[in-house]
Design a protein around this nucleic acid. Structure first.
Length: 424
RNA sequence: GGAGGGAUGGCUGAGUGGUCGAAAGCACUGGUCUUGAAAACCAGCGGUCCGAGAGGGCCCUAGGGUUCGAAUCCCUAUCCCUCCGCCA
């Protein structure tokens, strides 16, 4: 959520900044609601003040043994006036909150202009795509050959956009998770966590998936309530700090978690239907940092490096792009995507996304730290990034490490995790 | 699933329907003392919203209710603890 004060004092300026994201901020509607809110808040508070003052004097009179009947008569209709005022105020603040919670984060000034992924800006490339003296297959064809990647069985068990892995391929999938977690914890200083795969609405509100993006989530009815399967570990892990005031010496908080992620892919029918690029269920190792505001841009670079390190160790060629305004997510002020080279598709595809949410999530979360300079609780900045998406890493290895016989060599770094196996 | 008990500021913890936004302690900040530190002593010290300010509102898990007035009484929900049952 954006800072209401900021929006209030410079609505036009905020609207102009949000245009970069392709978002039209309804300035007139906001200003109108805001002036109503102010008027009603003052009216309500005046009534409350009067009620408090009078009630107090009744208490005094009673204590002094005076007759309080005349005083009671004077306040007879104050209650109903107050109720009416409160109801009007509630309506307006609810409308205002609705409006404001649908407004995305303001993109950083360094974010490139642009409408969609075609306008993203490449920052750097690492590694050289391998030359094959045969026509490289994509991971679906490779999986069919070995029989270890099976979409038909998955469709029988559940439906489309699921996969079944078996044998050594399943093991490599597991090996990747261990490898990523070990790297993030042992080399990059993250604390490993294990978290719920279902969360409540408050958590999703805190990180910004709700109220706007509920249709992307799998819902789980639970008694009278509703839980949601997590779309990313960002949700449970970032919510660690909801309603917390964090001691400055504890910052930065650096957490990593391996979780499955569940996405309905509601708006993506027909997109990436082949293979395991876009699934309803996939594994991801996530990095989350909670930092003091002055450090968040530094942390974005650092975390991008932490994701890149995995690809470098696996010797997978990739490039890093800065997302343009139109391609940025709702809560992000800036995002780096890391795209891995896929020979089977002859293109780079997203394998990690690292974002600085600045104080946007922290405001909804009420995640604060006590700034030693002011002594006051102030909002922290939150960041998250994949380190990495496991399924996509697996298929990148399949395609980049394939042999003419359609087998898959095991990347050096993974051999210890594979019990010494060097080829599948 | 059943029976009880609880939830109060950064933490621990008192609180009789009416000067209660809330005792006390810890922690923290400033000061006195000291070469310096510790100890001791003194003082300060919740959050949030509106307002230029003066000031005012709201917040004692959450949501309802009773009342002129609720941290305090009633209802519901959530979470935690104890015991019984069941269970990977």
């Amino acid at each position: 959520m954006l800072d209401a004060k900021l929006v209030r004092s410079n609505p036009e300026e905020v609207a102009a900044l949000l245009l970069k994201k392709g978002y039209q901020f309804p300035v007139a509607q906001f200003t109108e609601l805001e002036s109503q809110r102010r008027e009603m808040q003052m009216a309500t508070e005046n009534l409350q003040n009067e009620r408090n003052t009078r009630s107090k004097s009744i208490g005094k009179a009673k204590a002094a043994g005076e007759d309080i009947q005349p005083l009671l008569a004077e306040v007879a209709d104050l209650g109903s006036q107050l109720d009416a005022a409160k109801a009007r105020l509630n309506d307006v603040t609810a409308a205002l909150d609705d409006l404001l919670s649908g407004v995305p984060n303001i993109p950083d000034s360094s974010v490139p202009e642009g409408a969609d992924e075609n306008d993203n800006v490449e920052l750097r490339r690492w590694g050289t795509p391998a030359e094959f003296d045969f026509t490289p297959l994509d991971h679906v064809a490779l999986g069919e050959k070995s029989g270890e990647l099976d979409f038909e069985t998955a469709a029988k068990l559940t439906g489309s956009r699921f996969s079944v892995l078996t044998g050594k391929l399943a093991r490599m999938h597991r090996a990747l998770i261990q490898f990523m977690l070990n790297t993030q914890t042992e080399e990059h200083g993250y604390t490993e966590t294990y978290v719920p795969y279902m969360v409540n609405e408050d958590s999703l509100r805190g990180t910004g998936q709700l109220p706007k993006f509920g249709e992307d989530l799998f819902k789980v009815p639970f008694g009278e309530r509703q839980y949601y399967l997590i779309p990313t570990a960002e949700v449970p892990v970032t919510n660690f700090v909801r309603d917390e005031i964090i001691d400055p010496e504890r910052l930065p908080l650096k957490f990593t978690a391996h979780t499955p992620c569940f996405r309905s892919e509601a708006g993506a029918s027909g997109k990436d239907t082949r293979g395991m690029i876009r699934q309803h269920q996939f594994e991801k190792v996530e990095m989350v940092q909670v930092v003091e505001p002055s450090r968040s841009w530094e942390a974005l670079e650092e975390m991008t490096g932490h994701a890149e390190a995995i690809l470098q160790k696996l010797n997978l060629p990739y490039r890093v792009v800065a997302l343009c305004g139109g391609d940025l997510g709702f809560s992000a002020a800036k995002t780096h995507d890391i795209e891995v080279w896929l020979p089977g598709q002859n293109t780079y595809r997203e394998i990690s996304s690292v974002s600085n949410m600045t104080d946007f999530q922290a405001r909804r979360l009420l995640a604060r730290w006590r700034n030693p300079e002011t002594g006051k609780p102030e909002l922290v900045h939150t960041l998250n990034g994949s380190g990495l998406a496991v399924g996509r890493t697996l298929l990148a290895i399949m395609e980049n490490y394939q042999t003419a016989e359609g087998r898959i060599r095991v990347p050096e770094a993974l051999i210890p995790y594979m019990g010494g196996v060097t080829e599948l």
